[in-house]
Write a protein that binds this DNA or RNA. Sequence first.
DNA 1: AAATAATTTGAAAAGGGTTACCATAAAGGA
DNA 2: TCCTTTATGGTAACCCTTTTCAAATTATTT
Lengths: 341, 341
Amino acid sequence: MKRVTIKDISKIAGVSPKTVSRIINNEIYVKEETKKKVLEIIKNYNYVPNIAARSLVINRTNTLGLIVPNLENPFYSRLSRGVIQTAEQNNYSVIVCESKFDREIGEKYLRMLIERGVDGLLIATLDLDNIFINKLLSIKKPFVLLTCRLDMPGINYVIADDFKAGSEVVEYLIKLGHKNIAFLKGPDVYSSNERFMAYKAIMEKHGLKIKDYFITEAALDKKDAYKITLGLLKEHRDITAIIGNNDYAAIGIIKAVNELNLKIPEDISVIGYDDIDIAELLAVPLTTIHYPKYTCGVAATQRLISILKKDNIDKVKSKKIILETSFIERNSCGPPKKISN
Amino acid sequence: MKRVTIKDISKIAGVSPKTVSRIINNEIYVKEETKKKVLEIIKNYNYVPNIAARSLVINRTNTLGLIVPNLENPFYSRLSRGVIQTAEQNNYSVIVCESKFDREIGEKYLRMLIERGVDGLLIATLDLDNIFINKLLSIKKPFVLLTCRLDMPGINYVIADDFKAGSEVVEYLIKLGHKNIAFLKGPDVYSSNERFMAYKAIMEKHGLKIKDYFITEAALDKKDAYKITLGLLKEHRDITAIIGNNDYAAIGIIKAVNELNLKIPEDISVIGYDDIDIAELLAVPLTTIHYPKYTCGVAATQRLISILKKDNIDKVKSKKIILETSFIERNSCGPPKKISN
DNA sequence: AAATAATTTGAAAAGGGTTACCATAAAGGA
DNA sequence: TCCTTTATGGTAACCCTTTTCAAATTATTT
């Protein structure tokens, strides 16, 4: 059974293919009568335009590529929804890829997406080095970076002010009276690094010593934070507050604290970042920073699509979009029990 | 700046387009020397084959459509990963859509995906009615249903044995000594319904009365289960165990139980379904049923791709794949405190 | 009524690959 | 030497839609 084409429809309707094309694409200059007749035939014959043929001639696929580290991570799944829904509203489809926080994998998918003929790219991953950026620029496809700052001509990005957010967290804990504040570092990506820098800066600003064991690193595994906190608190009981690099880590921290029969927030204050959806559902609702994940996806996609609408990429000025975070005070933090030093 | 085409490459290399095509597609009958030379030129000129042109002639897009209710739900994000990764391994891209548990939206995306020219569909949503199924069948695109049973000729699906899983949960609680077991129903989809049927069947089997207030319904909102449980337990203190329709609901239940100063599992046993990744990270690690979400995505995608490889869809026999669930005993259940009735 | 403008339609070419088929050159066998 | 094979490259048709440009029709103005 052969596929129904625009020619078949035009033959049946007794008009030219161009007229059918006009009707499909809602162009002006078609008589209402003709339109109605052709539409009827299209419906009867279940005609669906061949998108490949169209793409070939209009030189667009109306497809965007999205690279995130991990779709299962609630942070990125929310961000991805922002992207997908915004794209859909603008008649774009999204192909999603996972870089697994690995630059090589990220590059592999980048190539793959280019070969797939996406019109533009949304990249929410990769600690970008110059080689990679040059590669990206040489591709001549518009792209927008998410959750990643890179001030270079021609680079568009959407971030939240992670340094400010990180500062707020530390200031908050210090105001509560905490001095021995531990920080659980996350993967080596922009937002994690900013948060960590803020931690160091604010501690220093208040003349608080950062003992070497205050700083620990959790990789990607969800149990990491739990294990590390367990070890940390067994050894060092002077710590009164722990900052997780994100809410996932905070959940692991909470579990470890519980296991050691310490109370939150009485014995240990715990704070997260991101405000993932279960943060408020936890037994002790988590104090955290709300990161506008969805908005980030939306803003980046809108920006990308607006670039795609211009005919000349080079004419488009680069743009930085910086979103607001907000501090969400819940129940996982309180004043320290005893003054320690 | 015009795009580099296969003809340009062939001209530069001094060979025919066909030869270049052979090299790109790894066909035999190309001299090693020629191949090397052409590959070099392709690289130098950054030549990327035009996928639209290729799709047009081979009549495939190597794209699959995936419809899930909600990508942010950990159940579906894990399932989606299974789909995306399996697709990628087989050189397929995936366009993801969210139906939001709404049939109309689901149908809208179905049409959209068809127009996008996907080669096949993976549908993990929609309580399918006959009209919809007929529509699906009339489209003549291969598709596989996920987490949804439908025994009809020509229908392929992948499910887990939710009835069995549901039975295990209830049997387990009864064995622990529970009699007054409440059940929090979920959205009206296959797996939820099966679980609920199992609850009723096993309770009946053991001669246990299902009081009308045992059964409550939570919609999609994450706070639902919390609110409902709060109301439930305030009114009815004879309940000793609550079954959530999924782990999300269980988290809400736990929060409510905590708020009422009841202990888990001493005062109330709580059990979930699905085994989402944070289930084991909770303060009280959640006893639940492990649902093979990832495997489900993988199996369905493999099945779909194997159908796509045959030349004639009608020749493909329909296939049901039923996956194993497993009971995960953690710490959220125990014997009831007092014998109640 | 003629001239002009606006609307409606169509023919042919273009877009970039793949494929079927054909042509040639080199190698091997009778 | 001549005829098959085998290996390799070339040609032209085709996939289906949009685009360009021009022609035909209808409406409006003078």
